[in-house]
Design a protein around this nucleic acid. Structure first.
Lengths: 232, 232
DNA sequence: AGCCCGGGCAGAGCGGTGCTCTCGTTTACA
DNA sequence: TGTAAACGAGAGCACCGCTCTGCCCGGGCT
């Protein structure tokens, strides 16, 4: 991370970046399954075995790309929220949804890599967790701001969270500080709903079913906002 | 499908079934990426080239498994709904949710195959569409029954569907007959929410975040029911 | 009854993959 | 300056999907 101390470390960092860049390009065109260490090496004018000086295995290269992906969506989410009037919580929620959706549609393979089927024997290492949390942190801030302003008023007739989930609500309050159990799970409902839509859209489940996807998406996210009781 | 006319056709049908069975077992243990024609052939005491008498390519074998998967979840959904008092629409909705979830957790790789990242160059053929619709048809019937009985009363304060989505609402009324545009998209919200939760749970996104998953899931699905206005 | 034809399987082989091991070279550091 | 670590090349292993060829054998037609 620091400025390359030695020439060797500098060229190593450069080559590592070149590898991930080429791999990301290959990922974008062929998907995770088509990512080939040999192809990356070929494109760099190197031999495949040399790759293993930089990434111990293909999975480690994938891990690097996964972390990059989480950071990309996290940054998109943060930038979207920075551009909004903090008091306009409904606008911030919709802006966050559109930002994540735009990124997902522009990078379907990267989206699949981080939110889709896990790769075969691959176990997400701890390092991914930090990056994975950036987007949801933005969401938590919006909800918390709304609550603090008294602008989170869910409709009547909602079910009571059962006692069993109280512990999970406590965990989730790290992301959603100061929320009641009811509000915590309304937020979970909205968040899973957002990614449910995105997964179905990116993976082609809406083909021949929903065509005006942007409008339908925004309306669905407005439904989620209404369920949370997010007022403008 | 019909009773094997000649002995040759009968043994062919049996071998085809044996191949898909072995492939499904391999799918369950290694995932879609680990599905190997050669391994299936090995396990059958045959040579890999012989597989191509039955499936023109690995992707065609995958297609067969995908159709099987859609039919499996469709059957699970239908059976769950048959076992419920038709007038208990909230119970039917929750039963449907739990049935699909139980199946997904029991067959994570098959779930990933049909609802997860699409496989590399694979394009879902038309044949899958019929099987894919069985589960959502059950859902549509529950909502339609509720509407017919006047038991679908969404809470106040919901957004109006924009004009742009009217066409899609018309398409979706094939599954959700007699529903208003508002109700159609509330149903879409619930359905995408269901699969959003399932995808995140099956793909491990709830690790270390939500532990009482069954209770939290049911509560989330009750939230969706409340948004739709599904009364018992 | 005899023939023949086509489905079924085996084997070899092509080009590709991830990954390992060895070997000579280059670089950084003590 | 000497040494240990990093580096890249090359050969090779086991596996993959897929193709082509050739043999066998059973069922259907003459």
């Amino acid at each position: 991370m620091s400025v390359g101390r030695s020439a060797r470390e500098r060229v190593r960092a450069e080559l590592t970046k070149e590898i991930t860049d080429l791999a990301r390009r290959q990922l974008a065109t062929d998907g995770a399954g088509g990512l080939s260490l040999r192809a990356v090496a070929r494109e760099m004018g190197m031999v495949s075995s040399a790759m293993y000086r930089y990434f111990p295995s293909r999975d480690d290269l994938l891990t690097a790309l996964i972390i990059d992906g989480y950071n990309a969506v996290g940054e998109v989410a943060e930038r979207a929220d920075d551009g909004h009037d903090p008091a306009d919580r409904l606008g911030r929620w919709l802006g966050l949804c559109h930002a994540v959706r735009d990124w997902a549609l522009a990078h379907p393979h990267e989206y699949a890599l981080i939110y889709g089927s896990p790769v075969p024997g691959y176990q997400a290492p701890q390092e991914t967790l930090g990056a994975a949390g950036r987007a949801v942190t933005v969401f938590g801030r919006i909800v918390a701001d709304a609550t603090a302003a008294g602008a989170l008023r869910p409709p009547p007739g909602l079910p009571e969270p059962p006692a069993a989930v109280a512990g999970d609500a406590r965990t989730l309050r790290e992301i959603l500080p100061g929320e009641t159990d009811t509000a915590v799970f309304l937020a979970v409902t909205a968040w899973t709903g957002l990614f449910g839509w995105l997964t179905m859209e990116v993976f082609g489940q809406f083909e021949n079913v929903i065509e005006e996807r942007r409008a339908a998406f925004e309306h669905t996210m407005r439904n989620h906002a209404a369920l949370m009781g997010l007022r403008g």
